[in-house]
Amino acid sequence: MSSTVGAVPPSAAASPPSSVPQHRRPSYRFGRWDIKYSPYLYIAPFFVLFGVFGLFPVLYTVYVSLFDYELLSGTKEFAGLENYRVLMADAQFWNAAYNTVGIFVLSTVPQLVVALLLANLLNRQMRARTVLRMGILIPNITSVAAVGIIFALIFADRYGLINWLLGTVGFDPIAWRDNRYASWFAISFMVDWRWTGYNALIYLGAMQAIPKDLYESAALDGASAWRQFWTITVPLIRPTILFTVVISTIGGFQIFTEPLMYGFGLVRGGADHQFQTLAMYIYEQTFTGNAEYGYGSAMSWLLFMMIIIFALINFALVRRSVKGEKK
């Protein structure tokens, strides 16, 4: 209550009846209201939408994860931390975590390195520069489902393009799905095909902000192109590299569609779950079978925490290994 009283401007409360004509007061008051509150109103849509579609679902997931909640049978009983306890001992969950991390490392490391080199190449004077620069983004704007279908065909076990090529030069076909690491490779390839160009374009944007005279003076000092790249380009775009690492970590840990399409639409991820990712396992538990919402929520929440932890680790690792500007 005290805050409400305090909110009334003391001057207005204490001032004697003024001589200003009555009809002018409302508009004067409106003007003050306008200046004071309008900014909040302008930014409110974001916060309201974020609250409704971002914050609320996250918090509700935490709430649901404390229940034994099966949608199919309608069971909803408070279970405390039981879901988390079961989760810790769930071999399939840790298998999915292993696959997710494996696919993430196998896809993100080459992806960012290649993107960096690609951006460096595109940062030079050359013909058809704009066409090339835009061209590398094309894989990113193709539908992920279409990419999945095509790559599932290329990496098909029996009639696939790659196994056919291997056969023509006398190699044995690769069991693209039965072999865990072959499947990881194929899925990573799909991810990289889509995202390398996107990251290269972001790097390119950052590189263009580097003053040209730095390179000129380095060249005068006799620094090779490679030396220039490592001692000027990379340190100066370090914030951008950190940004892409964090974004790739978030995206990589949520990988779902690529392995799903690769397994011909089955969330199982191979006969032995050899390429089932965390997102696929969450889907399997939450939306198929008994529709175990409580268990799925617990997993989602754990995945959320894992993403934060890995993003921080990666952030720290890259910040250490890439030297920034000396301060």
Binding site: G6, A7, Y37, A44, V48
Partner: peptide
């Protein structure tokens, strides 16, 4: 106190407006 209260109220009003 009063500042927090006022801010809170403003946000609440804005939220209400959008909510409505």
């Amino acid at each position: 106190m009063s500042v927090i209260g006022r801010r809170f109220r403003t946000v609440a009003v804005a939220a209400l407006a959008v909510g409505v």
